[in-house]
Amino acid sequence: RLTVMSLQESGLKVNQPASFAIRLNGAKGKIDAKVHSPSGAVEECHVSELEPDKYAVRFIPHENGVHTIDVKFNGSHVVGSPFKVRVGEP
C-alpha cells in the first residue's frame, strides 16, 4: 500500500511550487497525478523518482481556493485520493 507523505493541506501560495512525496512500499507500477483548480482547469503534476521506492509529485497552483489532487497508481486512486489542498488565505 502506498504512503503519501508531507502533503501540505493549507498555506500554499499561487504560482509557487508545491510538492509532496509518495513511498511505494515495494509496489511496482506507474504514478499519475492531476490537480483540479477551483475554476475547473486540470493540470498534470510532475512526478519524479527521488529514490527507487520514493517519488516526488510537484505542481504549481495558479489561483486561490481549494484544489483537488487526484493521485493514481496503476490507474486506481491511492488511499485518501482525491486530496484537497487550500491555496491562499481562507
Rank of each mutant, 00 (worst) to 15 (best):
R1L: 08
R1A: 01
L2N: 15
T3C: 15
T3M: 15
V4A: 01
M5C: 14
M5L: 15
M5S: 12
M5F: 14
L7F: 08
L7Y: 03
L7M: 09
Q8G: 03
Q8C: 03
Q8E: 06
Q8M: 10
Q8A: 07
Q8Y: 04
E9V: 02
E9I: 02
E9H: 02
S10L: 04
S10N: 06
S10E: 07
S10Q: 13
G11D: 11
L12Y: 01
L12S: 06
L12K: 02
V14F: 01
V14E: 08
N15T: 02
Q16H: 11
Q16Y: 07
P17V: 10
A18M: 15
A18D: 00
A18W: 02
S19D: 05
S19M: 05
S19I: 04
S19R: 15
F20Q: 00
A21R: 06
A21W: 09
A21S: 14
I22S: 00
I22A: 00
R23T: 07
L24M: 11
L24C: 10
N25D: 03
N25K: 10
N25M: 13
A27S: 12
A27R: 02
A27W: 02
K28R: 10
K28D: 09
I31V: 08
I31T: 03
D32H: 05
D32K: 05
D32V: 15
D32S: 12
A33V: 12
K34P: 01
V35G: 07
V35P: 00
V35D: 04
H36M: 08
S37R: 05
S37M: 08
P38R: 03
S39K: 12
G40E: 10
G40V: 08
A41Y: 09
V42K: 03
E43S: 06
E44I: 01
E44F: 03
C45A: 04
C45V: 07
C45P: 07
H46E: 15
V47F: 01
S48Q: 12
S48A: 10
E49S: 10
E49Y: 06
E49G: 12
L50W: 06
L50T: 11
L50P: 10
L50G: 08
E51G: 07
E51V: 11
E51M: 06
E51A: 08
P52G: 10
P52R: 13
P52L: 12
K54V: 06
Y55K: 14
Y55M: 11
Y55Q: 06
A56T: 14
A56C: 12
V57R: 00
V57Y: 15
R58V: 06
R58D: 10
R58M: 05
F59N: 00
F59K: 00
F59Y: 15
I60M: 14
P61W: 00
P61G: 04
H62L: 12
H62N: 11
H62R: 12
E63D: 13
N64Q: 14
N64K: 11
N64F: 08
G65V: 00
G65W: 01
G65K: 01
V66P: 10
V66S: 11
V66E: 14
H67Y: 12
H67T: 13
T68W: 09
T68Y: 11
T68F: 13
T68L: 10
T68C: 13
I69S: 00
I69R: 00
I69K: 00
D70E: 07
D70I: 10
V71L: 13
V71Q: 00
V71S: 01
K72L: 13
F73G: 03
F73W: 03
N74V: 07
N74C: 09
N74I: 08
N74P: 03
G75H: 12
S76A: 09
H77G: 13
H77I: 06
H77Q: 13
V78M: 14
V78T: 09
V78P: 08
V79Q: 08
V79I: 07
V79D: 12
G80H: 04
G80R: 08
S81Y: 02
S81C: 08
P82F: 01
F83G: 09
K84G: 05
K84W: 02
V85N: 09
R86E: 07
R86N: 13
V87R: 00
G88I: 05
G88F: 14
G88C: 05
E89F: 14
E89M: 11
E89N: 13
E89H: 04
P90E: 03
P90N: 15
